[in-house]
Amino acid sequence: MATKSQHSRAYRPLPEFLRGVRETAGLTQRELGIRMGKPQSWVYNCETANRRVDVTEFIRWVTACGADPAGAFAQFLAQATDGGRP
């Protein structure tokens, strides 16, 4: 049986990172959902890897949290890589 890509080992750091961005911004899942035009359950599913987040959603998420997408992506890469390799 195939495993969904959001459950892969390589994807695991992203949901935790997104949650951290939201929490650093002082937002609840509901507040972030409102800013993004999504229900709270959508935010929950992204943060628990029940739903995969694409790059455009990453940008919208970080922007809705008041952060710079390029800076946030650089930070994510620094945290999620081992010796410069994903």
Rank of each mutant, 00 (worst) to 15 (best):
13 P>V: 08
13 P>D: 00
13 P>C: 03
14 L>G: 07
15 P>L: 04
15 P>D: 10
16 E>L: 12
16 E>A: 15
17 F>G: 02
17 F>Y: 09
18 L>H: 06
18 L>G: 10
18 L>C: 11
19 R>I: 11
19 R>G: 08
20 G>M: 10
20 G>R: 04
20 G>C: 04
20 G>S: 13
21 V>A: 04
21 V>D: 04
21 V>K: 13
22 R>L: 01
22 R>T: 00
22 R>Q: 01
23 E>C: 07
23 E>M: 07
23 E>K: 10
24 T>G: 14
24 T>A: 13
24 T>P: 12
25 A>C: 03
26 G>M: 09
26 G>L: 06
26 G>V: 11
26 G>Y: 01
26 G>R: 01
27 L>W: 00
27 L>I: 15
28 T>D: 01
28 T>L: 02
28 T>H: 01
29 Q>K: 03
29 Q>A: 01
29 Q>H: 12
29 Q>V: 10
30 R>F: 12
31 E>F: 07
31 E>Q: 09
31 E>G: 04
31 E>V: 15
31 E>D: 06
32 L>Q: 03
32 L>M: 02
32 L>S: 01
33 G>Q: 05
33 G>E: 02
33 G>K: 05
33 G>H: 02
34 I>M: 07
35 R>M: 00
35 R>K: 06
35 R>D: 00
36 M>A: 03
37 G>H: 09
37 G>R: 09
37 G>N: 02
37 G>I: 04
38 K>P: 12
38 K>Q: 15
38 K>S: 14
38 K>N: 15
38 K>D: 11
38 K>H: 15
38 K>M: 14
39 P>L: 05
39 P>R: 08
39 P>A: 08
39 P>V: 06
40 Q>K: 15
40 Q>G: 08
40 Q>F: 12
40 Q>H: 13
41 S>K: 09
41 S>V: 11
41 S>P: 06
42 W>L: 05
42 W>C: 02
43 V>L: 04
44 Y>S: 15
44 Y>C: 10
45 N>H: 13
45 N>Y: 14
46 C>V: 11
46 C>M: 13
46 C>N: 11
46 C>D: 08
47 E>S: 02
47 E>R: 08
48 T>Q: 04
48 T>E: 06
48 T>F: 08
50 N>Y: 09
50 N>A: 07
50 N>R: 13
51 R>N: 08
53 V>R: 02
54 D>A: 05
54 D>S: 07
55 V>H: 11
56 T>M: 14
56 T>K: 13
56 T>L: 15
57 E>H: 06
58 F>H: 01
59 I>E: 11
60 R>N: 12
61 W>E: 03
62 V>K: 00
62 V>P: 06
62 V>Y: 09
62 V>H: 02
63 T>I: 05
63 T>Q: 07
63 T>H: 13
64 A>P: 06
65 C>I: 06
65 C>V: 10
65 C>T: 12
66 G>S: 12
66 G>N: 06
67 A>Y: 09
67 A>L: 10
68 D>G: 07
70 A>I: 12
70 A>Y: 14
70 A>V: 14
70 A>H: 13
71 G>E: 06
73 F>G: 11
73 F>P: 10
74 A>M: 14
74 A>P: 09
74 A>F: 13
75 Q>C: 12
75 Q>Y: 12
76 F>C: 02
76 F>V: 05
77 L>G: 15
78 A>L: 13
78 A>K: 10
